[in-house]
């Protein structure tokens, strides 16, 4: 695999040469990304130095604060409280979301029963009931897990459902014309067809789970990364507050980007036959 890493890199292969028309376009995408990061953080630094507000520290200070939080062990301890409920919640979501979605795609009855509530869960501002959940289940693990599940389950379910439900008609017809059984249709056609959508749904679910865990922790005193954010805001140490916010966004981004790379690699490998 290592020899192929370069050509598998989605960012490296996505842009063919732009030709003479657009000289700057010849820069490889990774350079553009670095430029983009530099520009953003540079503007942040500048805005913090002016300063546009006392509550807006320069990027440099935030980086220093981030290292401070890491070396004091504070940040790691906080993630020790934030990540377990996130992982538990996401595991529950993966099992039930995919299960519900596949069931809905295969059976009219489960579709009838589950589709409307899932649409509501997806569209409605479910965050409204999270205060109640923290109120009901206290500051423990349970409330956080429920918050994660509520905000991640609908996406996973509906994506899995769509993947199954919208399997290409002609592939299903093809299976029937060769006298395949319903079971073969499901196992050999529908599930492989839906796998891409299911994977994408899981990514969306993880994104929702991050939103849920942070929300739960902001509304419950005093645990995890949400507590760090709230605490440093209350004592007006804004560099530390931004460092904590930066860390959770960076973590979510890394996880989601990593998954995307894995996903592309799997499908690219499938497309090249190297997995079989």
């Amino acid at each position: 695999m290592s020899a192929e890493t370069l050509s598998h890199d989605p960012s490296a292969s996505s842009e063919p040469g732009m030709g003479l028309k657009d000289r700057v376009g010849d820069l490889p995408p990774i350079v553009w990304k670095l430029l983009s990061f530099a520009l953003f953080f540079g503007l942040w630094e500048l805005a913090g130095r002016i300063p546009i507000s006392l509550a807006f520290p320069p990027f440099g200070d935030v980086v220093v604060a981030l290292f401070g939080l890491i070396s004091s062990g504070e940040l790691i301890a906080a993630y020790g409280r934030t990540l377990p409920p996130l992982l538990i919640g996401l595991s529950i979501t993966s099992v039930f979301g995919v299960g519900f979605g596949v069931a809905m795609g295969l059976s009219r009855t489960s579709e009838w029963a589950l589709f409307p509530p899932m649409i509501i869960l997806q569209t409605a501002p479910m965050a409204a009931i999270i205060p109640l959940i923290t109120y009901a289940y206290g500051i423990g693990l349970t409330a956080k897990v429920i918050a994660v599940v509520i905000l991640s389950l609908p996406m996973v379910t509906l994506n899995s459902y769509n993947g199954i439900r919208y399997t290409s008609d002609s592939l299903l017809e093809m299976t029937r014309s060769f006298m395949g059984t319903r079971r073969q249709q499901v196992v050999k056609i529908m599930l492989p067809h839906a796998s891409g959508m299911i994977f994408a749904g899981l990514r969306l679910g993880i994104s929702g789970g991050f939103i849920g865990i942070v929300l739960a922790e902001l509304l419950i005193t005093p645990t995890g990364i949400g507590d760090i954010i709230s605490y440093y805001r209350s004592v007006a140490r804004y560099a530390e507050m931004f460092a904590a916010i930066f860390s959770i966004i960076a973590l979510a981004t890394l996880v989601l980007t990593g998954l995307q790379v894995v996903e592309r690699r799997i499908f690219k490998a499938l497309g090249q036959g190297s997995l079989r």
Partner: peptide, 24 residues
């Protein structure tokens, strides 16, 4: 049956696609 849109499984090789009728 031979299909207008080919009805090939995008995730399977030509070999598996061609053998699919027998696989079923």
């Amino acid at each position: 049956f031979v299909f207008q849109d080919f009805a090939l499984m995008p995730w399977a090789s030509v070999l598996r696609n061609v053998a699919f009728g027998l696989e079923l």
